[in-house]
Design a protein around this nucleic acid. Structure first.
Lengths: 204, 204
DNA sequence: GTCTATATATTGATAGAC
DNA sequence: GTCTATCAATATATAGAC
């Protein structure tokens, strides 16, 4: 029973990495089994189909959001606006560390699979929502520095949009320049939003 | 000879649509042949491998950029800034028309294949560059309405970043809301840039 | 729960007639 | 250039012993 959980975990973790690096369709069950050091009997004991394994991987990503993505940044940065840019910088460093093969695993799967399987699409959307909820919370914590009429939910969605689009271009160009360009523009946008706020406080 | 060109074109066009809807790995050669009404002997007469066919598809996208993407927008809109948002709106309408399965075919392939094949990656990057070059030209044409110190190449890259990231979220949520949110924020950013310029002209 | 062995379908690609 | 027939490899998945 203890060993079986270890095997299941190893299968999910191996599949997670391979789906990330190669995509879902391009990753064969045989490769997952080989790299996880397991046999097909074990995999199909836990997961009736390859797609069930994918769903478990997407559940794992939901569980990893706070401990692996947000909390390491939040532990080092307290200012809520800087937390947003700290999260973005973590993705930037991930790109550099993986020589532009990394990026965002959810984004990859979103474009590959959003049409195919409804349940999978729902889990991808839930991963996005978990991410933007955290960004949204940062923006709410900095509400007094932003114009009162800013739609913070919309702005949080925009932050994810910018991150995903920037990662995509960096992978195509194998360069961090598109990311740096995107962050520079997003930072400029935030600066202008916060400048307006400080003006309206003075004049109001 | 005339017929052979027709067959080749049909194969490329069929592959283009299938790669767009299903991805490269998920599309089998057999399906391409069936929907193009051709046999494997024809396909492998023109293309030694499936990847050669993909490269031809990416060349076709480069050829389609002006007639299929830019010119229809430019024909209706003359203001350079509005041309930028007109191009973005065309993608938005494409998403709605395809019920969120459409989006940007290059973006899909970028995340699926940028790591795998160097030649393919280069062609994807060239497609991105062709797109941003057109946006860049619009921004240059409106240079007198933007702050003098704005990096217009960086801003053009940012426009693509926003488009691609927005399309991705729309497909995951099957909703146009993330796109509308992104455009609202980008429009706000442009408005603030242009407002700064008009202030500096008055004060300078 | 994990193993071996295997089923069945499909993959990308080839050979050779026409 | 296009056809038919087919290859070898790989795909996901299953059966049944242990």
């Amino acid at each position: 029973m203890a060993e079986s959980t270890a095997t299941k975990d190893r299968l999910v973790e191996t599949a997670r990495k391979l789906f990330w690096n190669q995509g879902y369709s391009a990753t064969g069950v045989a490769q997952i089994l080989k790299e996880a050091g397991a046999k097909s009997g074990s995999l199909y004991y836990f997961f009736p189909t390859k797609e069930d394994l994918l769903r478990e991987v997407l559940e794992r990503y939901k569980a990893l959001l706070m401990p692996a993505v947000m909390e390491p940044v939040f532990a080092k940065i307290t200012d809520p606006i800087e937390r947003v840019f700290g999260v973005l910088d973590a993705y930037r460093r991930g790109l550099l560390y993986t020589e532009f093969s990394g990026g965002c695993p959810i984004g990859n799967l979103a474009l590959e699979l959003s049409d195919a399987h409804p349940e999978v699409r729902r889990l991808i959307a839930e991963n996005f929502t978990g991410w933007t909820d955290q960004i949204r919370a940062c923006l709410d914590a900095a509400a007094d520095r932003l114009p009162a009429d800013v739609d913070r939910g919309q702005l949080a969605s925009f932050v994810l949009t910018v991150m995903e689009g920037a990662v995509m271009q960096c992978r195509a160009y194998r360069s961090q320049e598109p990311f740096d360009a995107a962050i520079a523009q997003l930072r400029d946008h935030f600066d202008r939003l916060m400048r307006e706020r400080s003006r309206s406080v003075v004049s109001g």
